[in-house]
Design a protein around this nucleic acid. Sequence first.
DNA 1: GGTCTAACGGAATGATCTATTCCGTTAGAC
DNA 2: GTCTAACGGAATAGATCATTCCGTTAGACC
Lengths: 214, 214
Amino acid sequence: MSDNEVRLPGRQAEALRNDTAILDAARQVFIREPAAPMSAVAAVAGVGISALYKRYASKEELLRTLCGEGLERFSAIARAAAEIGDPWEALAQFVTGIVESDVHSLTVKLAGTFTPTPELHEHASASTALAEKLFDRASKAGVLRDGLVPNDLAMIFEQLASIRLGDSERTLQLRRRYLRIQLDALRAGPDRADLPAPAATDDELGQRWQPRRT
Amino acid sequence: MSDNEVRLPGRQAEALRNDTAILDAARQVFIREPAAPMSAVAAVAGVGISALYKRYASKEELLRTLCGEGLERFSAIARAAAEIGDPWEALAQFVTGIVESDVHSLTVKLAGTFTPTPELHEHASASTALAEKLFDRASKAGVLRDGLVPNDLAMIFEQLASIRLGDSERTLQLRRRYLRIQLDALRAGPDRADLPAPAATDDELGQRWQPRRT
DNA sequence: GGTCTAACGGAATGATCTATTCCGTTAGAC
DNA sequence: GTCTAACGGAATAGATCATTCCGTTAGACC
């Protein structure tokens, strides 16, 4: 670890360390199980429950924070991919980046477990726009199979995020395997059958942000 | 509905009708939400809770029954596909059949919510063997991309089963769309990159049958 | 050294949710 | 006109959690 913040000694240093420990633990716990109890987060972070509530007024607030952080990460990955010259490589890097950082679990799968703020909605729209730009570039370059639309990417993320077997390292390996398969099928090529049904609409995908009970 | 069992009149006829109503409702409810309460099943079936417990000693027993029924369906689909002459068509029909009947949600996704019986295990093994036969036939015919193994099919089912948007009809449409994409990527063809990691082993897949809490 | 207090740990509280049981009804069987 | 299998659904008995409360404690400051 780097020590770029060791200005603060003693007690306050511990508090800072706990800040990140709690966020890391929460990310890890809620990615594995979106309905996990707060006590599980505290246990993984190695702190007491009160340390959580000192920082976040409620579970919802913690989840919102995690989700926002996920959207941030999503945007960063999209922006980095946009720097790549080759349109296909840019898209592939983007998709790979999202899958490798498991950002989908942090955003869409957490949405619906809390009531979203307008800011989160805007942030989500902006992120989607970045992804669409990458998609359109590849599409105009003719490297994508016919009939695909940007929202297909979201569904592919969803499918890959459903893979979870063994520890997180093994899960990552398996996701890479099936990502390769999916990417191969997205490229333009001979023998591509027509896609049988329209992709999900924005409205359909937006339903995920409606608060759910489960 | 056909009336092949109307020998029994009155009260017993109602009981028979309830038998299937309950099983249908349970299938529908637990596919949508594996952790659904028994009362939800009763509500959908249009009966009282006691009608459930008259037939199944516990929730576990109902889940086991559903799972067994799903394995039965799985085998039937595999056997029907085995009749098809063309190896690729046989495999494609099999995969399509599993996805269309949402049988994966009935077997693997329910496994782990109850303690499995030895019979279920054997039944599962037998089903897997049928699927492997279809896979091997296609593999030997050279129509599959290199590096695929039978267990890849299970992961593809898993990914497609994770798609759920709107009502069941819309969900089916979307699954057909992404099934087409996945199938295209399974065929042998030019430009197929090597798959980056080994597929799931039987042991890894078997872990799903270990009882979980969630 | 002696206080003071921010930051904690974690038990206690108050809701909520559910599997299962219990008991009074009722509609056909006879 | 009885009798009873099959019900409906309220009541019971436990879980499971989010959140609060209160007693500790380890640095900060004198």
